[in-house]
Simulated scan of single mutants.
Amino acid sequence: MRGLFPRCGLLVAAAQAAMLAAPLGASAGLLDYVGQCVPFARAASGIEIYGDAWTWWNQAEGRYNRGHRPRQGSVIVFAKTGRLPLGHVAVVSRVVERRVLMLTHANWSRQNGKRGHAEQDVTLYDVSPGNDWSEVKVWYRDVEGLGGGIYPVKGFIYGGHPSPQLTSRNPDYVGALIDAYVPGAGR
């Protein structure tokens, strides 16, 4: 029996590693996810697109409706840039008002010094001159506010079957508005 316990420890460690590397499943909580934004957005939205985040906009053409207005459960597609060489995708968890929404995504801010973690109901602020969601600022945990970068957006993909875990029961609408409208948050 004594010789079995070290093996159990190795088996438990291997099982935990496999759970983290495995795709999101019904048994795993959406916010327990650690990994890239693409598998997370696919699981959270129900939109079945694969490949780098920046390719989602074109891949959605003819398969899903697309547009430039946020809707709860839609996927927002960030363009490929120097700061985002693979782009980024996230899921709209709440529309707060015409220029502020909350998104749920993975692999943006650092948590405990590491990237990849899921974040729920993060503030996103439309800073585009035409109020068309073509440029945004994103709440960044490392500075506990909107980050300094402005990111170009391709648009929103509609039509999946969003996870019921997409948003919290009591989202902080007031906090999202404060995040967005503090002096210097926009242009």
Rank of each mutant, 00 (worst) to 15 (best):
68 H>N: 12
59 Q>M: 12
9 G>W: 02
47 I>S: 00
84 L>H: 02
148 G>N: 12
22 A>P: 07
142 D>L: 06
35 G>A: 06
57 W>E: 04
104 T>L: 08
177 L>T: 07
123 T>P: 05
160 G>A: 08
3 G>K: 15
82 G>D: 09
27 S>K: 10
108 W>S: 06
27 S>Q: 14
127 V>D: 02
69 R>I: 13
70 P>E: 06
104 T>C: 09
48 E>V: 09
25 G>W: 11
77 V>W: 01
14 A>I: 12
134 S>Y: 04
72 Q>L: 10
162 P>G: 02
38 V>A: 04
183 P>Y: 10
23 P>R: 14
146 L>C: 09
81 T>M: 06
118 A>G: 01
148 G>C: 01
103 L>Q: 02
11 L>G: 12
107 N>Q: 07
22 A>D: 11
182 V>N: 11
21 A>M: 13
157 I>D: 08
164 P>Q: 09
46 G>E: 00
154 K>I: 00
64 Y>K: 11
47 I>Y: 01
169 R>N: 14
126 D>I: 04
67 G>S: 03
168 S>A: 13
74 S>F: 09
82 G>V: 05
114 K>A: 14
125 Y>R: 00
103 L>K: 01
39 P>S: 03
30 L>C: 10
51 G>V: 09
83 R>G: 00
156 F>T: 07
74 S>Q: 10
129 P>W: 06
24 L>K: 08
118 A>Y: 00
161 H>R: 15
184 G>L: 13
21 A>V: 12
92 V>A: 08
92 V>L: 05
164 P>Y: 05
22 A>K: 07
105 H>D: 13
162 P>N: 02
136 V>Y: 03
5 F>P: 00
132 D>F: 07
175 G>V: 15
56 W>Q: 04
187 R>C: 05
161 H>D: 15
17 A>N: 10
60 A>P: 11
81 T>L: 04
64 Y>M: 08
109 S>F: 03
95 V>N: 12
127 V>P: 07
138 V>Y: 01
142 D>G: 04
77 V>L: 05
17 A>D: 12
18 A>W: 13
108 W>A: 02
144 E>N: 15
14 A>R: 11
39 P>T: 04
42 R>F: 00
14 A>Y: 06
76 I>K: 01
58 N>E: 14
100 V>K: 06
140 Y>S: 02
19 M>I: 06
82 G>M: 06
101 L>A: 10
185 A>N: 12
165 Q>C: 09
66 R>I: 08
